[in-house]
């Protein structure tokens, strides 16, 4: 059961990574990247690294998204 969840999350991560690179709209790319970070945090927890999971959830899904959105608001939204 856990293995199935792991493979599902890994597939979702590859899917997200491809679409972050392919999306033309910067804001959408940042939101997809936040979803990537959230799934990565769950995966770290399943891989028995809870401290990295806490850091990934706070930095990857929280602060990075916020700083990237702030950067977009200072520049252009389209690529």
């Amino acid at each position: 059961m856990i293995d199935v969840l792991k493979y599902l999350i890994l597939f979702f991560l590859v899917f997200c990574a491809v679409f972050v690179a392919r999306t033309k709209d910067m804001l959408s790319a940042v939101i997809i990247f936040a979803a990537y970070s959230l799934m990565m945090a769950i995966l770290w927890l399943l891989l028995a690294a809870p401290d990295i999971a806490i850091t990934e959830a706070a930095i990857g899904a929280g602060v990075t998204t916020l700083l990237l959105v702030a950067a977009i608001s200072k520049t252009r939204r389209e690529e």
């Binding site: 809870p50 401290d51 806490i54 850091t55 706070a58 930095i59 929280g62 602060v63 916020l66």
Partner: peptide, 21 residues
């Protein structure tokens, strides 16, 4: 326990940013 200065500091900093936002 798991975590430490970096993880917890990031959580506290994110909470202050959430307040300012």
């Amino acid at each position: 326990s798991p975590g430490g200065g970096f993880s917890g500091g990031a959580v506290i900093g994110a909470s202050m940013i959430l307040y300012a936002l």
